[in-house]
Design a protein around this nucleic acid. Structure first.
Lengths: 192, 192
DNA sequence: TCATTATCTGAAGAATCATTCAGATATGGA
DNA sequence: TCCATATCTGAATGATTCTTCAGATAATGA
């Protein structure tokens, strides 16, 4: 039910999380509530599905980008992974912003963590294959990376996400991730 | 009404955001609903007050840390600001986690941005006074910093925040912020 | 003591919502 | 055409919620 997903986003953006009701979603999707309940056992399942679908798109974009730069240096890996993430997020800015508002209602953080784990793994693998880079505690470092990426992206989106801002974000975020990895990489990573 | 703030946190943690009702908060605080409504005009105002109070504590900690390192180098400024933020957040880990769940219901992002702005300004000022550091677009860079700080901290808190993890976060976050600032500072900042 | 003011109480009102299900409608084959 | 199966419909239900306010209780001061 693609229409229902889209309707959920629309209601969320137009009416707010408070007024996001199953009836309203069905109405905007052009079906009846009963039909909606034939596809999703309850409201929570619907919201989860919408969130997961969005996160999957983002994760797949990052994984694909990693594939494309396998074997290249750390700088390239980081740049392409970050840009893929941003492109995916920004191409559906409305969806991204809508989802911030319901992430808390369902078990958003858990769903997000599970989905993000795929991206983390992909970046880890690709970094491992980078010829100019070695790191003990890759796991934690890459999680830091995604924490920073998610945090800064969210901040920019919620500040309005003007084209100029997004442009700056693209540039600065790549820089931040590259310089951080260079720093933890060079001091052989696991110190403390 | 400090008891009401505390009760709000307790209900939020024990029962979840769904079951956070004014009646339940009043009950746990040991007062009646009517009394609660004499202090706050409605539920939203209560939640805002709790959120703002927490954010103010964090902002004040960061500002105080900045005062203490005024005149020192960039590394020290970043280290102390970051550690002050983390100390404040982690000293009330339960509050931090509880608030993530209601940030969406009220206009959390807006409230947070307003409150964070004070910290941003303080760090900006202090960095400006650092003898070893110059930067054109400080504004955006410092906002990046706080985006990354908030994002990584949230990720760690939601992943369980074991002592080992928090220790790693302290170390890596300082490193990330320092290396990023060094990178944007050295290339004179405003490029693109 | 007693009147006055301030504060507290919690049952009741009005509204909203998630979910169900008996019946209507559509589909597809014989 | 006619039956069986699948899908859709939306009013009704039952539960929960925020908020109010008439009256109880406490505090103050003369």
């Amino acid at each position: 039910m693609e229409a229902v997903h889209e309707a959920t986003i629309q209601v969320l953006l137009r009416e707010g999380a408070e007024r996001l009701t199953t009836t309203r979603v069905a109405e905007r999707a052009g079906v009846s509530v009963g039909t909606l309940y034939q596809y999703y056992p309850n409201k929570q399942a619907l919201l989860c599905a919408v969130l997961e679908s969005h996160l999957r798109r983002v994760a797949e974009a990052v994984e694909a980008a990693c594939e494309r730069v396998r074997g290249k240096g750390m700088s390239d890996v980081v740049q392409h992974a970050v840009q893929a993430y941003l492109d995916a997020k920004m191409s559906r800015r409305d969806v991204s912003m809508a989802l911030y508002r319901i992430a808390a209602e369902i078990d958003g953080p858990a769903v997000a963590r599970r989905s993000l784990q795929k991206s983390v793994k992909a970046v880890e693998r690709t970094l491992h294959a980078a010829p100019d880079f070695a790191l003990h505690s890759e796991k934690f470092a890459v999680q830091m990376l995604f924490g920073a990426i998610a945090g800064t992206t969210k901040a920019v989106l919620e500040a309005g996400a003007s084209p100029a801002m997004v442009k700056s974000l693209r540039h600065h975020l790549v820089l931040m991730c590259q310089s951080y990895l260079a720093a933890v990489g060079s001091c052989s990573g696991a110190r403390r």
